[in-house]
Simulated scan of single mutants.
Amino acid sequence: MTTSNRQRPIRLGTRRSALAQAQSGHVATALEKISGRKVELIPIVSEGDTNRASLSEIGGMGIFATRLREALLNGECDILVHSLKDLPTAEPDGLVIAATPVREDARDVVLSRDGTPLHELRPGAKVGTGSPRRIAQVRRHAPRAEVVDIRGNIGSRMGRVESGELDAVILAAAGLSRIGSEVTLAREELDLAEWPTAPGQGSLAVETTADAPAELLAALAELDDEATRLAITVERGVLEGLEAGCQAPMAAHAVVTGESVRVRTVVYAPEGERRIGLDVTEPLRRGYIRLNGSGNGADAADGADPNHAAREIGLSVARRLLDQGAAGLVSREQS
């Protein structure tokens, strides 16, 4: 890298939302310490920011990422920071996820005015969420409540509860933590065993071009947390396998412990009346996946790629879900 490149700021492309700016700022601060270079945030407007239709109608997967990735490929920025749960499983040609920092709290939380637990809400209570997965979960866990399909930033969603328009909203714990906003509403954390969340929830993905300078790739690798990368690779493997024949709302959460990974995954019928789930623990065999390698997973023993192996675990879980009838939980129009 030339002296001029070392002096030039690293341009970090990010959505304009307060949450996106906040999580990009956390990455920027860490990258500045590692690289010794200034990191400049480049705001980019995505389709998800301008299209106010329901996520269930326009499809949540990819609508926040496409414009940002175009900017990266066009040289408008050097790196991107995404909420990993917003990324499609297929990586575009020429791009790589160079780092997955340590995952934050992957749980969902319910925010309400009086602290009534979700399952105890009165009949007709209005619960706001725009996620098809959360909609199915609410209908299963609080069948007497009315689900209101909403969009908007964290502040506006909380404001609709404070004003009395809604009785509760469901948000990601990681988003509340990263944005650092004051929460005056009562908070109920939803346990992952009963309420698993979206693949990659709580995780960030730092993306760059495959031909990025070696010095930049090396700096980004220092941001990577291997246990997080392996866990989210399992989760995204489940999602990838289900997309072939199942578009139902689904959840997957994996935890790497020692030399094994436990993955809890559920596919829901859209109305929440049925579900098919698995809770399995798979070995990460010594000599096949090693957890003390480099941040990019390249230091696996015997030449095995730990990320490839983690993906195969996820694909295997997806096949088992499909074998148990997961594809039948959605109507033909949704397939």
Rank of each mutant, 00 (worst) to 15 (best):
A173S: 15
C246N: 04
N292M: 02
G303D: 04
V127S: 02
R262H: 12
A318T: 11
G128H: 04
I289M: 04
G94W: 06
I289E: 01
A172V: 14
K126V: 10
L55W: 15
T116L: 09
A174C: 13
A28N: 05
A98D: 00
D149M: 00
A28V: 08
E243L: 09
T184D: 07
I34Q: 10
P88N: 05
L176M: 00
I276F: 08
Q23P: 05
A168R: 01
G124L: 02
P88Y: 03
A219D: 00
L68H: 05
G277N: 09
D302L: 11
I34M: 08
A304V: 12
V148T: 04
R144L: 15
V238R: 02
E47Y: 07
I63P: 06
S35Q: 11
S260F: 01
E222N: 10
A90Y: 03
G293H: 13
A221Q: 01
P213R: 06
A227K: 10
P43V: 07
T116I: 14
G152C: 01
Y288H: 05
A90H: 07
A231P: 08
R290D: 14
K85E: 14
N307R: 14
Q7P: 04
L166F: 11
R140H: 11
R15D: 14
E188Q: 15
G94D: 06
T228E: 12
P143S: 09
V267E: 04
G159I: 09
V280K: 13
A90M: 12
V27P: 01
G180H: 04
L239E: 15
S331W: 12
S335F: 07
L322D: 11
G245M: 07
E240N: 07
T265I: 11
R144H: 08
G328L: 14
S24A: 15
R236A: 13
L322S: 11
R286C: 10
T265L: 05
C77I: 00
A65C: 13
L73T: 10
L204K: 02
I34R: 12
R157G: 01
P199C: 05
H253R: 13
E226L: 15
S17R: 14
S56R: 14
A301C: 00
G152I: 00
A136T: 06
K126T: 06
V267F: 05
E243M: 10
A18H: 04
G237Y: 01
S131V: 07
E271T: 15
D191L: 11
A22P: 06
I276G: 08
I135L: 09
V148C: 08
L329Y: 01
G60S: 14
A227R: 13
G295W: 03
A136C: 03
I232S: 14
S177Q: 06
R122P: 00
A65T: 15
A22F: 07
T197V: 08
I289H: 03
S35C: 08
V234I: 08
S54E: 14
R69E: 14
G36D: 05
A269H: 02
S17C: 14
E312R: 09
